[in-house]
Design a protein around this nucleic acid. Sequence first.
DNA 1: CCGACGGTTCGGTGACGGCCGAACTGGCGG
DNA 2: CCGCCAGTTCGGCCGTCACCGAACCGTCGG
Lengths: 208, 208
Amino acid sequence: MCLALLDGRAWTAGELATHVGVAPSTATEHLHRLVKGGLLAERKQGRRRYVQLADPGAAQLVEDLAARLEPGPPTVTGLRAVTASAALRRGRTCYDHLAGRLGVAVTDAMTSRKMLDQDGGFALTPYGKQWLVSTLGVTLEGGRRPVARACLDWTERRHHLAGVAGARLCETFLARRWVTRIGTGRAVRLTPEGRDALRTHLGVDRLD
Amino acid sequence: MCLALLDGRAWTAGELATHVGVAPSTATEHLHRLVKGGLLAERKQGRRRYVQLADPGAAQLVEDLAARLEPGPPTVTGLRAVTASAALRRGRTCYDHLAGRLGVAVTDAMTSRKMLDQDGGFALTPYGKQWLVSTLGVTLEGGRRPVARACLDWTERRHHLAGVAGARLCETFLARRWVTRIGTGRAVRLTPEGRDALRTHLGVDRLD
DNA sequence: CCGACGGTTCGGTGACGGCCGAACTGGCGG
DNA sequence: CCGCCAGTTCGGCCGTCACCGAACCGTCGG
């Protein structure tokens, strides 16, 4: 369930129950514990109850656990499952930022263009901040949350950009329709406009 | 047990058993699972078996879990326990770097002296690298491990410096006897020479 | 060579936890 | 007003897991 919630959206108890294949009563029990423990936040709307990860810290924790526990995606079988997992590997959201080959490619491009410093840690350079704020028009005020943070990509086994900057970047990509969600899941697809934008802004020609 | 192992040292199975108050056979069972799961590494020496956290990633995971789960140190009672926990709050090692008020103070001083950029993320500045390498004489080669990383301090509720830089800094502090270990635990004490060094190198006058 | 000691293996036990089905609650819609 | 649906509560069952004591194994020291 926590893995499913990593898409950053709010799920209903019933959705999660069928998704993981347990009875609704079982799901209810688990979700109550996770809420009481502070990992999830709940929001009641009429007769249904939505849960989502409580905060970016919770998402990071789940992500880190998953990264350590999964030595690789367990071999999927069946055409449907294979295409779905291929789409996820190509591009997806990870809580509130971009991941998969797309997320890593953006991170790499920002690094080689000196917008991101991965040499002394993981931080935006002044130029990188300027690009985000002036060129893309986002704001980087984030309260106590770090502006830039490395998040280990569990399909690519590389770091991609998370934190406030990663979240704003992902919002921008979605708002400008550089990427669109595939169906209702976490997978995203790069649009032709997105392809152009990647080339002009970041010099990324193609994603393998 | 994992919390105890956060001091970075290698413990024997028996030590851990008595430390957490279970039978040796129980400890053995748990430790075998943790080793098989890749969280701990074991090293046999004669008739005893040492275990320690497998890698910095494992330490980070345990630390992050602890930071999230502990809303604060559960009120300790008794003079002995109180002084011990006060010493831990003042200064300690966290796996392989400095933590507690000492660790946070060093991190803050490096930040205000522009050695560390906490504004765009968490990274050493060129000046910070130069200070570590030229003035303190450490090397920052660390393979795949990040040079600088933020680690949430569970007593101070603030970030302190971890990663390769944090580890080298801690080694230096210990080697130059700026801090010394108190007894056999994780707690460290600032020596008079350490006090001088903090003042001359980082402009830190006193730790509250 | 023998005893002490650290560690492990094994069998058994008690309890806890996950899970479900059935009954119940309360919004929502016809 | 009644039926439907999402979710919850409750009771009970079963599996599993933590734990321990006792026996066992190797290593070290006398």
